[in-house]
Nucleic acid binder design. Structure first.
Ligand code: FES
Ligand code: FES
Lengths: 143, 143
DNA sequence: CATATAAAGGATAAAAATGTCTTTTAATCT
DNA sequence: AGATTAAAAGACATTTTTATCCTTTATATG
């Protein structure tokens, strides 16, 4: 569905959204521990996210990672897109060139519009939206 | 979502369902060509499917692979299960131990019931069912 | 300016998935 | 029985994903 790296990315971004601010930056290693993501690997993922302006970072003493207000408005889809590329989620289950209603493969109807809905949800929901759910106790960020 | 190997497996099984019978077996290489699956790799996949009685096979001259009537009644889920194991599809998007409504991770609701529905469809639809769709022109087996 | 801090970047390693090749086993046919 | 056919099995190669380590660059502070 989505790669391990994308899972790491989403978890890290949500952790930052919940626990950091521009005035309270967090070190890579301090995200690694509570989220159970290998430190060095997470650093790479954060690097990539930072390069694409999905998370904010500052080097040096007092530095670290955080989410700007703009960062929090980013749709979850963009995180996955940056890490996994753009056709991992939308591609056909049986590797047809295009996955659409006009030329469905035999498995297309088994997935139904579910895949399309999922992608739509990923595009419409921002980091902020998911954080709100967590704050309201509707969902839980796994450790 | 599902592995490449599973895609190969489903494609090969459907190809067999459409083109083979106990009296007309098909060689691995003759499935490989029309389905664009690497010959040697497909042989391995078929081997595994045969070991789990998902496809039937006979060695020697006049031998090959085919689907028995029983084979055709197998749910698609079983094919994926044999190749990918049982928790690739049902596992949590953020690697929580359990994926359920009681303790949803922040992404759980974005997937919604789509994943559950998909798995249900995979369990309820047999090889035969998908073949019927193809025969009726409702779907197309990709080459 | 010197030093410490922390991310960025590059190089490498380990594991898993994918793909290929060769040998063995079972079945058929002469 | 001997030869041929085709899957089963095992060994090996490549690629991708995941993970670790080391060096460099940027920033802050004394
Ligand atoms: S066409 Fe294959 S999943 Fe849509
Ligand atoms: S709990 Fe994470 S996807 Fe269901």
């Amino acid at each position: 569905m989505i790669s391990n790296s994308s899972k790491y990315a989403v978890k890290a971004v949500l952790y930052l959204a919940l626990n950091s601010s521009e005035s309270h930056k967090i070190l890579a290693k301090d995200i690694s521990s509570p989220t159970n993501i290998p430190k060095a690997y997470l650093a790479k993922v954060l690097q990539e996210l930072s390069r694409h302006n999905i998370v904010s970072s500052v080097k040096g003493p007092g530095g670290g990672f955080y989410l700007s207000e703009d960062n929090k408005k980013i749709p979850i889809m963009k995180i996955i897109h940056v890490i996994d590329g753009d056709n991992r989620l939308t591609s056909c289950m049986l590797s047809l060139q295009e996955c659409d209603e006009e030329n469905p493969c035999p498995m297309h109807d088994l997935v139904g519009n579910t895949k399309v809905n999922f992608v739509k949800n990923l595009e419409q929901n921002t980091v902020e939206d998911l954080v709100e759910d967590i704050r309201e106790g509707k969902s839980f960020l796994p450790l």
